[in-house]
């Protein structure tokens, strides 16, 4: 019975660590194609990275778990003895350097993407976002005002920077489609920017717990054409 359990665990493990990165890559390609592309490159790299590390450890441990089962009752293990300093340090330092190299590789990748994510393009349209329990208010450069029922209406093809503050508690503005979020809080001003390349409607939500109706603090980012946007913002002025 125990053997069967182990076999099942092995199959699950191989599927998870072997197939997941491949499957996820397809998913990523299908769903996202605009300025979040760099995000997905890093994400897929990372899935491969952790898939390989996890796979090695998992396959090794599952192999050991099968191969070294106890044959006789009085049998004892015959594992390596770490008697010399060289062996102890070797087995500590070599893996450490491998892990560290991988850490720095991932840091470099993450840093590069981070700079993209935090450098607001000069021509970005600015929208002032105010969070309050439990809703959002958006104020545009020309004085147009919107809320979460109306949605965050933005023209396609122009980066949008959100200047965010909160009236009461900590909130967080999250647009899953654009892979971005940042907290809002009283007393500080925070930013995030995104690039609505194509028309469409995407969900935004609050992701920092803010009380009873936390889960009602959501709405849609509506990406429309420039003409529709101009018409809309004229109508919602003041």
């Amino acid at each position: 019975m125990i053997n069967r359990v182990l076999l099942l665990a092995a199959i699950v493990g191989i599927i998870v660590f072997g197939v997941l990165p491949v499957g996820a890559e397809d998913e990523v390609k299908r769903a996202f194609t605009d300025h979040t592309e760099e995000f997905h490159k890093v994400w897929v790299h990372l899935l491969w990275d952790i898939g390989i590390i996890g796979g090695i450890f998992l396959i090794l441990s599952i192999y050991f778990m099968f191969a070294y089962r106890r044959k006789r009752d009085d049998q004892i293990g015959n594992g390596p003895k770490f008697t010399t300093m060289g062996m102890i340090l070797g087995w500590a330092l070599i893996p450490s350097f491998i892990f560290m190299a991988d850490d720095f590789y991932l840091s470099a990748q993450g840093w590069k993407l981070w700079i993209d994510q935090r450098t607001v393009p000069e021509n970005a349209m600015e929208v002032e976002v105010t969070g309050q329990m439990w809703g959002w208010e958006f104020e545009y450069e020309n004085g147009a005002i919107s809320d979460n029922d109306e949605g965050l209406v933005v023209p396609e093809g122009r980066p949008v920077v959100l200047r965010m503050k909160s009236d009461d508690v900590v909130h967080s503005f999250f647009i899953p489609r654009y892979r971005i979020k940042e907290d809002l809080m009283p007393g500080r001003v925070t930013y995030l920017w995104f690039y609505p390349k194509d028309k469409g409607e995407h969900v935004f939500t609050c992701t920092e717990f803010c009380g009873t109706n936390h889960s009602e603090m959501w709405g849609k980012v509506k990406v429309v054409s420039q003409e529709e946007f101009d018409e809309w913002s004229e109508k919602n002025k003041g």
């Binding site: 890093v42 993450g110 994510q117 967080s172 971005i180 992701t207």
Partner: peptide
């Protein structure tokens, strides 16, 4: 935890 250690990926993954 490794993607969650990376600031740029966590911008998306945090609090989900």
């Amino acid at each position: 935890g490794i993607p969650l250690a990376m600031t740029s990926l966590t911008l998306h993954l945090a609090e989900t």
